[in-house]
């Protein structure tokens, strides 16, 4: 495991009572996760096939940005950390190079993020 964090560990400082109070938000996050997995999968095919790869990579980064903004607070620290890595690696400003170059660097993290998101569905 690349981040060294246990699967779906609560955010530092988060406690069960805190997470219980956020349960409606957590539920909503889980509900949107399946659609996000499917969207990332479809965009991944576009990047790999070179179909408007820049736009597809940017959209994956955008989805990752949204995930990383909330996941840790909702008790999915590993998902949040992986999403932040994916966003950074796919962002042209941070990472540089063409969409293909950035994709090559980000691919293992995207795979790990997809695995972690699958695990969220079982949460």
């Amino acid at each position: 495991m690349k981040t060294g964090l246990p699967q779906n560990a609560p955010a530092p400082g988060a406690n069960p009572a805190y997470l219980a109070a956020l349960e409606p938000v957590r539920r909503r996050f889980i509900e949107t996760t399946e659609a996000r997995i499917l969207e990332i999968e479809a965009l991944r095919l576009d990047v790999e096939a070179g179909r408007d790869a820049e736009a597809a990579a940017r959209q994956i980064a955008r989805i990752a940005h949204k995930i990383s903004g909330v996941a840790a607070t909702l008790g999915f620290a590993q998902v949040g950390a992986l999403a932040a890595q994916v966003e950074r690696l796919l962002d042209a400003g941070h990472s540089g190079g063409t969409a293909k170059d950035r994709w090559a660097r980000a691919k293992p993290q995207v795979e790990s993020l997809l695995d972690a998101l699958e695990a969220v569905l079982d949460a």
């Binding site: 109070a21 956020l22 409606p24 938000v25 909503r28 996050f29 949107t32 949204k66 903004g69 909330v70 607070t73 909702l74």
Partner: peptide
């Protein structure tokens, strides 16, 4: 622009 973040913010601010 993320409705889930806004929902989270609403919950945390209310708390």
């Amino acid at each position: 622009d993320d409705p889930i973040f806004l929902l989270l913010l609403e919950h945390v601010l209310r708390r």
